[in-house]
Design a protein around this nucleic acid. Structure first.
Length: 559
RNA sequence: CGGGGCGUAGCGCAGCCUGGUAAAGCGCACCUGCCUUGGGAGCAGGGGGUCGGAGGUUCAAAUCCUCUCGCCCCGACCA
């Protein structure tokens, strides 16, 4: 296409409301514009990138036998009421009424609708498995849209759903999706890995996420480079560095006004990792005392998986449940439910004495108190892998895709049944699988850019080649640009020709900014010798090529 | 939803604290002309603003006060 006619509004300055690199560059390079919080306009270049990504998604989904269909984005409430999610999901769901007063919502995901369809159209085990997908808009009233296109209120998603006769079939569908996802993200040029994750509101059993490392990400994963263990920190297991054994007698110590682990630790000259931190939370079924080692942090989500929804207790609740003020709580002789982190099973500790201004030294878990043992702490850099004992690292990542084993969570309430070989009615066993194409684009920028702008991976670049006709007033330059443009397109290469009547510097700057992987530079000096330059955006290497052989040379780059 | 920040021309900002100079300013972008064409040129001329909105205080408000809307960041939340 011709630059002079295209809407590519590049900006010389950094937009004031953008922070993440991908956000800054997408705005600066003229890919997107913001309409409102979490709502973006995709300009021509961005749309081309999305189309490239979607084409890869379609190829890989079709290759695993998935069938593309299209579901509405506007849903009747009843279906969501049948699965209960109408009530479980809060403000994140856009809700509205139609003209007759009927409750409706905008689709934030499509398990319900896909299952509704399956309930009507799948009858027999002979039809299984089925895999259906769409690439369609999702709407979520996010509490906090952020980082440009990384977290928005309206976004495109490739979502697929598998329907199998049994767990064994689901296992196969799940594995095939995982493999397809590996191919998709590889083809898109991403650095990524698959981690274990928390199924969250999707319910069901196992789930994995596909994560692209980037400081702009919202998630953190724990990774063991030695054995390959990788999990979202929401559920990652790890062993903290062990305490050296100490031989303390049980002894009450006076700690006037010292409440936090830090204060008591300094006061007594004992490291925080020899403390038991006691935190009272209020769950739906009453108060629960959570115990973690003094140098560690309680992970709310891990605790929530054991005791359900909860919140920190207020001061008066602590006093009435435990009979002591916060800061001096200890696990000994407590009437409330006690959940302790597994690492506390060994060692000797200091904790609150359940008496104002006193702590107790020499606490031995198991002997001095009992508890339910669970992993409830946050995995940290330098902890040890539970599988191979090597040190783990924590990596910030962008979630670009996820896969869930749903089981019969949706098929049972929505009565999506089939008849098996014996004529028995059984619920379909389902999986669901999502990919956010915009996140792929943003992650690609996060992972591939330099000070001058974007460096697109070839497979998802908006164009294959940009021709920079440096001086459009030079007839030779103009004619050659036109000839290359024509010849390259004839070979199926997507070309952007910068035919603007602008100075060379402007064209160089814009070309680097928008990040098309290969630049063909037509300058008068080299043309005198019959040469043009082919520049690699990533390496900045320039190769001078005879004008006649440029097309052939470029073709070798794309093969 | 809690905490913080910001709304002045298309973009980036100054002015506000301490109200008034004359005419709301600067850089970039934009329009016209000349000139220029290998890393965001130069000269000359020009267009574009209800200072986010509403109310108030005052002889006088971009500036002070109240309310409100919007956007960004941190946290909570997040298929």
């Amino acid at each position: 296409m011709r630059y002079a006619n295209l809407l590519i509004p590049t900006l010389r300055e950094v937009p004031s409301d953008a922070e993440a690199i991908s956000h800054v560059l997408m705005v600066r390079a003229g890919y997107i514009r913001q309409l409102a919080a979490g709502l973006y306009i995709y300009l021509p270049l961005a749309l081309r990138v999305m189309r490239k990504i979607n084409a890869i998604l379609r190829e890989e989904m079709n290759a695993l036998g998935a069938q593309e269909i299209a579901l509405p984005a506007l849903h009747p409430a009843e279906i969501w009421q049948e699965t209960g999610r109408w009530y479980e999901i809060g403000d994140e769901m856009f809700r509205l009424k139609d003209r007759t007063g009927r409750d409706m919502c905008l689709g934030m995901t499509h398990e319900e609708i896909m299952t509704w369809l399956a309930a009507r159209e799948i009858r027999s085990y002979r039809e299984l498995p089925q895999v259906w997908y769409q690439i369609q808009t999702k709407l979520r009233d996010e509490a906090r849209p952020k980082s440009g296109v990384l977290r928005t209120r309206e976004f495109l998603m490739k979502d697929s759903y598998s329907f199998d006769a049994d767990e064994e079939g689901l296992e196969k569908s799940y594995r095939r999706h995982a493999e397809a996802y590996h191919r998709i993200f590889s083809r898109c040029g991403l650095d990524f890995f698959m981690v274990e994750s928390d199924p969250g509101m999707m319910g069901g059993g196992m789930s994995h996420e596909f994560m692209a490392p980037s400081p702009a990400g919202e998630d953190e994963v724990a990774i063991c480079d030695a054995c390959g263990y990788a999990a979202n920190v929401e559920l990652a297991l790890s062993d903290p560095k062990r305490n050296e054994p100490v031989a303390w007698q049980v002894e009450e110590v006076y700690t006037p006004g010292k409440r936090t682990v830090q204060e008591v630790s300094q006061f007594l000259g004992i490291e925080p990792r020899y403390f038991i931190k006691s935190l009272l939370v209020i769950s739906d079924s009453g108060p629960v005392l959570a115990l973690v080692r003094g140098d560690q942090e309680l992970h709310e989500k891990k605790l929530a998986r054991i005791i359900g929804k909860h919140r920190p207790a207020h001061k008066d609740e602590i006093r009435s449940a435990l009979g002591v003020d916060a800061g001096f709580i200890g696990p000994m002789e407590q009437k409330v439910r006690v959940i302790a982190d597994t690492c506390l099973q060994e060692g000797t500790y200091v904790s609150g004495a359940n008496r104002q201004d006193y702590h107790v030294k020499g606490i031995v878990p198991g002997r001095d108190f009992t508890a339910e043992w669970h992993d409830i702490t946050l995995a940290r850099e330098g902890d040890f892998c539970v599988k191979c004992n090597a040190p783990i690292r924590i990596q910030r990542v962008i979630e670009v895709g996820n896969i869930f084993k749903l089981g019969t969570k949706y098929s049972v309430p929505l009565k999506a049944m089939y008849l098996d070989e014996k004529g028995q009615e059984r619920p379909l066993v389902m999986g669901s699988y999502g990919i956010g194409p915009a996140r792929i684009a943003a992650a690609a920028i996060e992972q591939n850019h330099d000070d001058d702008g974007i460096v697109w991976p070839r497979a998802i670049a908006p164009f294959d080649v940009e021709i920079l006709a440096l001086n459009m007033n030079d007839p030779k330059t103009r004619d050659l640009a036109e000839a290359f443009y024509r010849d390259l397109r004839a070979k199926g290469i997507e070309v952007l020709v910068d035919d603007r009547d602008a100075r060379a510097g402007v064209k160089f700057k814009d070309a680097d900014l928008i990040g098309i992987p290969t630049q063909v530079i037509l300058g008068e000096k080299n043309l005198k010798d019959g040469l043009v330059e082919v520049k690699d955006r990533k390496t900045k290497e320039v190769k001078k090529v005879e004008a006649e052989s440029v097309v052939a040379y470029l073709l070798t780059l794309f093969s």
